[in-house]
Design a protein around this nucleic acid. Structure first.
Lengths: 208, 208
DNA sequence: TGTACATCAGTGAACGCGCGTTCACTGATGTAC
DNA sequence: TGTACATCAGTGAACGCGCGTTCACTGATGTAC
């Protein structure tokens, strides 16, 4: 990806990325054409290829940007200060619910990136790095509350807890658009996932 | 999909499906061409289009066949008789490990079908139906061992347990080819997943 | 049992559409003197 | 401050490749009498 030299082309680059993101969000599909993107961005194919070597590069750049935003969001959401005085059950519950809302809001992007991860493993790698980053943030919260956790390995526990939450919610969002499994609504899944994670970490759940 | 009228064309149909499955397994990619498939099957494009209205139909048929095989495998694996005398901790452990091996062995197919599910929601629906079927089978094992389970709703517990296992293992297989998260090898993930599911169901895990 | 005919099955060259990419050109911005 | 020149940025028609799909034809199988 060729870096822009003037503010003007920087704007164009952002318009292209934004247009691609909007189209993907709407269509929830991996099938985007360059003409569609430049049309929506009010740009042109030539301008496109002045920035990106090919179409894939745009999607990779968009994915990198999205993962960056997601990590930034996670950093804010998992800031230790935000959770002062909250017990771990509360933290887990809120974090799972927050993640679920994110998956819902960004369903189109999520579906498209999962599709690309299946075809191009560099998307899968970026996704893995994001997960590792989030797990580290979560671990900080666990360490502060280590007396509430019976799991002996906080590093491992954080990684597995985040893996479970992200896998169930992301994969569920992709696989359950359209047909929802009977007896397993989104809301029930979330509640049970919260319960499962708290039990896994060894926290006594709030009621029951 | 036009049903074959002679044994000859039935053979051709199966050769086409097998060829597609082999190619997908090898390339672990959604990008298959019709010429590749018929070349590998020792058939021809005309024969292909005599059976299938278009390329998508072949992949849908292949997916249906794979899901059917997977459900049949699950039926055998979760047969109550097979597990007579085994406690639930043993069942969970073996089932998770068995599922993990399946995901590993059929990684190519899994990746391709996840990719298709992202583009075509009918793949996602078939996948959801398979999950529901497996959950029902697992529920039978839970019901037999209901005294070992503290979770109050066996139907829900089975659905969520299966959702967790399949999500973590399938999504993990797709996202972790190439880059494995540090501190979270495949083997550790499996062990922790077994632990998490047993805790979720309310079984006391074997040691600890 | 043999011949004629109908239908099923298979072949692969040719077609054509769609989409990614190129490129010759115009316009905008920055810089030197 | 103004003019000349260089580079950056943007335009969109045209190209061409790849791949899905069609179709006119050949071969195989089944059926009627």
């Amino acid at each position: 990806v060729k870096p822009p030299q003037q503010a003007r082309s920087q704007k164009t680059l952002e318009r292209l990325l934004d247009a691609a993101e909007e189209l993907i969000s709407q269509k929830a599909s991996t099938a985007l054409t360059v003409s569609e993107i430049v049309g929506r961005a009010g740009s042109s194919v030539g301008a496109f290829y002045a920035r990106f070597p090919d179409k894939e590069a745009l999607l990779a750049t968009l994915h990198t940007r999205s993962c960056g935003e997601a990590l930034a969001t996670a950093e804010v959401a998992l800031e230790p200060q935000r959770w002062q005085g909250a017990n771990l059950a509360r933290v887990v519950s809120d974090v799972v619910r927050f993640t679920a809302r994110m998956c819902e809001d960004r369903l189109g992007l999520l579906v498209a990136f999962v599709g690309h991860a299946a075809m191009d493993s560099s998307f899968a790698e970026r996704r893995t790095r994001l997960e590792v980053g989030i797990a580290e943030l979560f671990q900080r919260l666990l360490v502060i509350r280590r007396h509430e956790v019976t799991h002996p390995d906080l590093d491992l526990a954080a990684a597995v807890a985040i893996r479970m939450v992200l896998s169930v919610l992301e994969y569920g969002a992709v696989m359950n658009r359209g047909l929802e499994a009977p007896n397993l609504t989104a809301e029930r899944t979330i509640a049970e996932l919260v319960f499962a994670v708290t039990r896994y970490l060894g926290v006594e759940p709030r009621q029951k």
